[in-house]
Computed example of a mutant assay.
Amino acid sequence: MTRSKSGPPKSGPPKAGSSGSGGISGTIPGDLEGCGTCGRPVAPRALFCHACGAAQPPRPLDPFTRLGMERRFDIDPEQLARQHAGFTRAMDPQRFTARGPRQQANAKAQAEALNEAYEVLRDPIRRAHALLSLLGGVPAGNEEDEEIADLQARLERAQDAGELDRIGLDLGQRVEACIKYLAPAFRKAQSDGGPDGHGTDGAARILARLERLEAMAAEARTRRTGLAPR
């Protein structure tokens, strides 16, 4: 019998036919849970039971694990889109109509969890926060940054569309640079860091800078929208 490499939780002891307390060789004790329909073991990422086909309720998982993506900042956006599309098609509640409302509800909950994970991973800032948390790091505070202060002052003084366009372009380039620098910073944190967030300071500082730049870019766009058409 083929068993899923993924799956959701159920409270209480496993039902008859399950592996008990992690009874399958090579699994982490407590990792597998009994399917609520047939009692066979399913793993944390399982969308449905591979024994009976029952849709499983989603377990608490980080967004990388839920979508089967490697835990890294520089993920492949096309692979992410394919993973999301394939999983959400598989969990279309309409596919479980004949199985009753309980499994339809499980399928809907899985689809919602997959959508939320996708929204996190497709956004660089949310993806960086998710990875930072997984590495045990903490967000950096807003350190004094003369360059950021000058950009903020320039934005506050801007009155015409042309200047706002120039500021927006400048900010956009700096945002892209931060996103580019985050990838090696996280690679270094993952290769050199310890289990308690050691080594994540560089990535955390770049992320804090990225958030400030993105906030200013959003302000510039909002103000530009209120002026004359381009």
Rank of each mutant, 00 (worst) to 15 (best):
P58G: 12
F96G: 13
L131S: 13
Q79S: 09
R66W: 03
L135G: 08
A90E: 12
G68N: 04
E112W: 00
A228Y: 04
A183S: 14
G68Q: 02
G172S: 08
E119F: 02
K10G: 12
F48C: 09
R45L: 09
Y181K: 07
A153R: 11
V42T: 12
R221M: 12
G199C: 02
D170H: 06
E78A: 15
D170W: 00
E163Q: 07
G20E: 06
R59G: 15
A117R: 01
M1N: 08
M1Y: 06
Q159S: 10
P8K: 11
E176T: 13
G22Q: 07
R224H: 12
G34Q: 06
D31F: 12
G100Y: 01
G39S: 02
Q173W: 00
R95K: 13
G168R: 09
K15L: 15
A215D: 14
A128W: 01
L121N: 03
Q159K: 05
L114G: 10
H50Q: 10
I28C: 03
R72W: 07
V175R: 05
A85V: 08
A140P: 02
P195Y: 00
V175E: 09
C178S: 14
A158M: 06
A204M: 06
R223Q: 10
G12I: 03
P101T: 13
A204D: 06
D123A: 14
A158Q: 05
A161I: 02
A218C: 02
P77S: 08
I24Q: 03
G23Y: 04
D145C: 14
R157F: 02
A183T: 05
F73A: 11
L61R: 08
E112K: 03
R223K: 13
G36Y: 01
L80K: 07
G194Y: 01
R122V: 15
I167Y: 01
M216D: 10
G86F: 00
E147Q: 15
C52E: 01
D123G: 07
I24Y: 05
G202H: 03
F73W: 06
L131G: 12
E146V: 11
Q152M: 07
S19C: 15
A128T: 06
R89W: 00
L32Q: 09
T65R: 08
P101V: 15
A128S: 13
G199W: 01
P124W: 06
D145S: 14
A81R: 06
A113E: 04
F48G: 06
R187A: 13
R166M: 10
F73V: 13
I24V: 11
T2Q: 09
Q79V: 15
G53T: 07
I206P: 03
G141A: 14
G194T: 04
